[in-house]
Amino acid sequence: MSETPRDTLLEVRDLVLRFGGVVAVDGLNMSVHAGEIVSVIGPNGAGKTSAFNCISGFYRANSGSIRFLGQSILRRQPSTITKMGMARTFQNLRLFKEMSILDNVKTGAHYRMKQHWFDALLHTPAYGKSERECEDDARYWLDFVGFKGDTSMYVTALPYGEQRRVEIARALMTKPRVLMLDEPAAGLNHSEKQGLIELIRRIQALGISIVLIEHDMGLVMDISERIIVLNYGKEIADGTPDEIRNDPLVVEAYLGTDEDEEDAE
């Protein structure tokens, strides 16, 4: 299927997610087009990560629709959604702690590797071929994200910023069409943030759409083509960085008004 840059890959309509009495996501509408960088921002507890988890299949939405590449993914398992071409990272790093860096990245190729269990048991030619291809791929993506060093080390031996890179490499290994990054800049220092911005641009250049949850406004304003602002589980604004910056609703959500100063947090 050939696509024009403005094709919609992901479309979320009237998404509602409740935890008991708490409405975490309340009628969210959003869409992601091919090859764009979209940021989702909002105050703490606005439902950004909850919405992310609904889209990637970790939470079951109470109502609404999520369509990805023209198919409904509302009741799909997270692994199925990943296979369809949506990868994600996690807010607090979730690498496989007792696996080497290379093995961590190699897990991303799990679903597309042509290798059965008996191939591994008997070391058939298919085993050698698939492992080699997988390793080459893994090294390519590690190189792509700018990881230099010994890939046989355990991930926990790496500094935080490097672990972030490995996590992105692992997500890229699944060959996504849409990459969702949940606060990728959290805990990074200034130069690491610059590296991240550059990396996100290079990922976009591959034609991968990026959905970004981020608190760092500098970074968001810098790279986003479109920003969606959530507050109390609802979308309150959707537009270019300039539009968002001057949107009174957004300013209110972030800074609060006189009446609801206490609720603003």
Binding site: P78, R94, F96, H110
Partner: peptide, 12 residues
């Protein structure tokens, strides 16, 4: 090591 992260990697 991490069931959710494994699921996110396309592993059933």
């Amino acid at each position: 090591d991490d069931e959710d992260a494994a699921e996110a990697m396309g592993i059933n």
